[in-house]
């Protein structure tokens, strides 16, 4: 039932993108998002779109799978598109009573929806090709300078690791409980808003209870293995930039420059 959410799941593979250092991927994703916000011409966004599609090809993730994973956010994209289409002033193209569509509105709708789509797609490339554990490793390393100002970087990263680690477990658990309650005749997620909210109680309460139980068990297991935070801890996997990362990074810079050029010239 709930298992169809595939956005953000890691898909095993051995492409150059899978093998890249997580820090490279994080930095590139963030920079790419910045670029997406800078450019506002449709041509530049189309170029960015082509690049994202290219990266998907290289990473070996099927388009069909990626698009299906994006279904849940499609609603947001369509919503922003409609808002922009109908509520932008400018040269009127079509008028139907109080509803009017302007040229500027159409362009803005296209730009905004493309931007949202690309933001999600580029972030999902990162999560599709990186295991949650390496991802948090990367984040921890990137945030290391913050330790100077007494920011609990390691603890944050540990929390993220645990949270990510338990997402699939919780999804499984939710699925199981939903099925068990459905087998007893519960209609989950139907009826009006109030009924719908109420129908989730038989799922949420057992889920909460089991989450607390799990958290407690995990805490005991960690203490039993003498876990006590970051002081003097070493890492099993040591992250290292290599030639591969340099190549990816330079290639990415060229692409960004190209997109920005298109934006400023056209």
């Amino acid at each position: 039932m709930i298992k169809n959410i595939t956005l953000g799941q890691y898909l095993p593979g051995s492409s150059i993108i899978h093998r890249a250092d997580p820090r490279t991927k994080i930095i590139i994703t963030v920079l790419f998002m910045v670029v997406l916000f800078i450019v506002s011409s449709i041509w530049a966004l189309l170029a960015a779109f082509a690049c994202v599609a290219g990266v998907f090809l290289i990473s070996g993730i099927s388009f069909k799978y990626a698009i299906r994973g994006m279904k849940p956010v499609l609603f947001i994209i369509v919503f922003t598109m409609i808002l922009n289409m109908f509520f932008t002033d400018g040269t009127v193209l079509i008028r139907l009573g109080p509803v009017r569509i302007t040229e500027e509105g159409l362009i803005l709708a296209a730009v905004v929806s493309m931007r949202v789509f690309l933001l999600i797609a580029s972030a999902s490339i990162m999560t599709y090709t990186t295991t949650p554990i390496t991802l948090t490793d990367g984040i921890e390393k990137l945030m290391n300078p913050l330790k100077k100002v007494k920011f609990p970087v390691h603890e944050m990263a540990m929390m993220m690791t645990i949270a990510l680690r338990f997402i699939p477990t919780l999804i499984d658990e939710t699925d199981k409980i939903m099925k068990a309650q459905a087998a007893r005749g519960a209609d989950i997620g139907s009826g009006n808003l109030l009924q719908r909210a109420k129908s989730f109680i038989p799922v949420l309460i057992p889920l909460f209870v089991s989450s607390f139980r799990r958290a407690d068990e995990l805490a005991i297991a960690m203490e039993a293995r003498c876990y006590r935070g970051s002081e003097g801890r070493t890492s099993m996997r040591v992250l290292k930039f290599n030639r591969n990362d340099v190549a990816i990074f330079s290639f990415f810079c060229i692409i960004c420059a190209g997109i920005l050029l298109i934006h400023y010239l056209i």
Partner: peptide, 12 residues
């Protein structure tokens, strides 16, 4: 009627 594994987890 289906009684799933560890059905006590569904009590609420």
């Amino acid at each position: 009627g289906i009684v799933f594994q560890y059905p006590e987890h569904q009590l609420f």
